[in-house]
Nucleic acid binder design. Structure first.
Length: 195
DNA sequence: AGCAGGATGCGCT
DNA sequence: GCGCATCCTGCTT
């Protein structure tokens, strides 16, 4: 088996993560949509303004999970990439459930269709039961509660790119990547403020 | 189909 | 206090 390399820059890592499997709480999902966030050169990144207690996982070694809490209700999960001191992350935006479907449905009773279960970053976390307690988890460790495994490689021709969702700065960067035509990919929404 | 608004906690100016 | 890397409901086209 090939081992997953998460030490590259966020853009390269984002493309690599498409098609990989994410497993937590007995549920496995195939990643279909991601966004790259690139530390000091990216005003939309949580690490842009330096290290804080909340984002310190981003400043650690690659391959760990950075989980944060937004809008008082939701968790979102990122894969940390690059190396110490040069923080990058890939936001997991959508996935299709490949195993543990009943568990995922129980976690997300509001989902109307199977494609809705893990569509959107907060829904993805809810469906897989990922919360703040998983912050910092080592995704490549066999004993980790959240794990990442390589799957069938995605041909470059199936990857599409466009602007990131819901941010109010750096809206022009095409740092969102998704599997072309996949039904779990979330709709584009422009961020608040500014234009 | 598309937008506006509300819910709700927490990190940072 | 304010502003979020969000989601869902309800109302308008």
């Amino acid at each position: 088996m090939t081992t997953l390399d998460l030490s590259a820059d966020p853009i390269l890592t984002a493309r690599r993560l498409l098609g990989c499997h994410l497993t937590a709480n007995g549920i496995t999902a195939r990643i279909t949509e991601v966004e790259a966030y690139w530390g000091a050169k990216d005003p939309a990144s949580h690490s842009y303004r330096g290290k804080t207690p909340r984002n310190e996982v981003m400043f650690g070694p690659p391959g760990h999970l950075y989980v944060y809490f937004v809008y008082g209700l939701h968790f979102c999960a990122n894969v940390v990439c690059l190396t110490d001191g040069d923080p990058g992350a890939v936001l997991l935006r959508a996935a299709e459930i490949t195993d543990g479907l009943d568990l995922a449905r129980a976690n997300r009773p509001a989902a109307k269709t199977e494609a809705d279960l893990a569509r959107g970053p907060a829904n993805l976390c809810t469906a897989l039961g990922i919360t703040r307690e998983h912050n910092g988890a080592d995704l490549l460790s066999a004993t980790s509660p959240v794990r990442l495994t390589p799957a069938t490689e995605v041909p470059e021709s199936q990857v599409e790119a466009g602007p990131r969702v819901g941010i109010a700065v750096a809206m022009d960067l095409p740092w969102r990547f998704w599997l072309a035509g996949n039904r779990t990919v979330s709709a584009y929404r422009r961020g608040g403020k500014k234009r």
